[in-house]
Each structure stands twice: as C-alpha cells, then as structure tokens.
C-alpha cells in the first residue's frame, strides 16, 4: 500500500511517541514498584468482621513511621475502627480495604491514593504523608443514595 512520505514520518513519530510513553509507564511500573492497586487476596463477605484483618479495624504500627490502616467502605461511610486515623508527619500508610456490601471507591484528593473497593477482595494502596494536615478520604464510586456523604479523614501531624 502506498503511503505519502510525510505520512510515514508522522506515523513513525506518533508510534514512537506512544512507544516512549509505554516505556516510561512500563519501567516505572515494574522496576520502581508503581503498579496500580491490584491486590489479589480474597475475603469472605458474609462474616467479614470476624475475619482477619477486618476483625481489628484501625491503625497498626508496623515500624517507625510505617502503618497499616485496616478499613472497610460500606453504605454509607468508612469504618476505621474506634476513631479516625491519625499518623505523624512522614508516615507511610498501607491502606487495606474491602466492602461488606456494594462496590465503593477510596480516594484521598490531591494524592495518588485512589483505588476501587470491591466486596470479596482486599485492595491495597500505599501513601507517604510528608505534609501535615487533615486529609479527606472519600468514596468516588457511585454506591447508592447516600454516596456523597461517604467520607472520613486521616490527620497527619
């Protein structure tokens, strides 16, 4: 098939551009551990709150400035245990979440902490809080009539 010379140059340029994008994404994904949240661990929805780790919701300190935050997203709120999360500045927090009912979202606006919360599977996302403040956590997947009131916070100080 005949292709105009300038179109050939354009297609080589365009395909090269896409290739470079993919290379940047691929290398940063697989060599620097920037995979999108893709946890695989199944969990039984029926007796969720008797099943570890969701039998003890809230923050677990793993190391100095490293925490695990166990929570569920339910209609219509986030269950973070007895109180909302608070961590010191500079903490790395591994959020582990699932849902006892429908699909929800977990998002901290202004950060890359963004994942789907699907019943029956645990999803993870990790974020390091270098700036103090009260971060909003909201549901970004439509889950029902009270979807817009679903929120909690994580306080960094």
């Amino acid at each position: 098939m005949h292709i105009h010379k300038l179109e050939k140059i354009w297609l080589v340029f365009g395909i090269g551009m896409l290739g470079v994008f993919l290379l940047i994404l691929g290398i940063s994904t697989f060599s620097y551990g920037l995979e999108p949240p893709s946890a695989h661990q199944a969990v039984n929805m029926e007796n969720l709150y008797d099943t570890p780790p969701f039998d003890e919701l809230g923050l677990n300190k793993l190391n100095d400035k490293e925490y695990e935050a166990i929570l569920t997203a339910y209609v219509f709120g986030f269950n973070t245990g007895d109180e909302e999360f608070t961590v010191p500045v500079g903490s790395t927090v591994h959020f582990k979440a699932t849902s006892p009912d429908v699909v929800h979202g977990f998002e901290i606006p202004g950060t890359n902490a963004n994942m789907m919360v699907v019943p029956g599977i645990i999803n993870h996302v990790t974020y390091t809080f270098d700036e103090p403040g009260e971060y909003l956590i909201l549901c970004n997947e439509y889950c029902g009539v009270g979807h817009e009131i679903m929120q909690t916070t994580i306080t960094v100080k």
Partner: peptide, 29 residues
C-alpha cells in the same frame, strides 16, 4: 484501580489500548 487483576495483564491491555491510537493518528493525517 481494581483488585483481582494482575499488574501484568493490566499493562498488556494498556499496550493494546495505545495501539488503537494509531488509526486515529492516521485519520488525523
């Protein structure tokens, strides 16, 4: 952003998604 699908398979489909950009580049020209 979903659990239950491995990063490898997500990335493979990202690559295929970028391939479907090519016919649009041709169309623009």
């Amino acid at each position: 952003m979903e659990p239950g699908i491995s990063p490898f398979w997500k990335f493979l489909q990202v690559v295929l998604t970028f391939l479907v950009v090519i016919p649009s580049l041709m169309t623009a020209f």
